[in-house]
């Protein structure tokens, strides 16, 4: 009896996207080329993320790409493209993590996540316009510490909300 193939076509495509999209997000900066170490780390991390979509290395890949773009100090339109690519990589990894690689990802779930990805991306132009606008304004005193406190509170709430309950035995 034949053993089933390792990955289904849909899973292979999704994992391919997880591998390619973070690297593409770096290549958007061409002709500027990231440092070789950054490139190697992103490629290696994306490779690991593609083979294991639930691996925490996904956070590191997104942080590396985002961090490198932040270090460039630019807020031009290319950041929008990078945001789209990173969100697409996250959505692809989430879809691939629904089941083992041999599982076919059905059309209804894919359509649902394309819509969700679009919903996530709605925040990108809003944030981009806000950042561009605020950069030209003199923020009132205390704006940034208050924002930091709000983010810290949000992080605390998120950490409390995302802690699971122990399984009932």
């Amino acid at each position: 009896m034949r053993s089933p193939s390792r990955w289904s076509v849909s899973a292979t495509v999704l994992r391919g996207l997880v591998l390619v999209l973070p690297v593409a997000a770096l290549l958007v900066a061409l002709p500027a080329v990231p440092h070789t170490a950054v490139l190697v780390l992103v490629v290696a991390g994306a490779l690991r993320w593609a083979t294991a979509p639930e691996d925490p290395v996904g956070v590191a890949v997104l942080a590396l790409v985002g961090g490198w773009w932040a270090a460039q100090g630019t807020t031009d339109a290319r950041v929008l493209v990078v945001a789209v690519l990173l969100v697409a990589a996250h959505v692809a990894a989430t879809l691939a993590s629904y089941g083992p690689g041999a599982m076919r990802v059905d059309g209804a779930t894919t359509v649902l996540w394309v819509r969700r990805g679009a919903l996530m991306l709605l925040a990108v132009p809003v944030a981009w316009l806000a950042v561009r606008h605020l950069a030209d304004l003199q923020a009132p005193a205390g704006t940034w510490p208050v924002a930091l406190l709000l983010v810290a509170a949000a992080a605390l709430l998120a950490s409390r909300a995302t802690v699971g309950e122990p399984d009932e035995e």
Partner: peptide, 12 residues
């Protein structure tokens, strides 16, 4: 500021 743009969709 680029990190705000990149982090916003994940916050949603």
């Amino acid at each position: 500021p680029a990190l705000v743009v990149l982090g916003a969709p994940f916050a949603v």
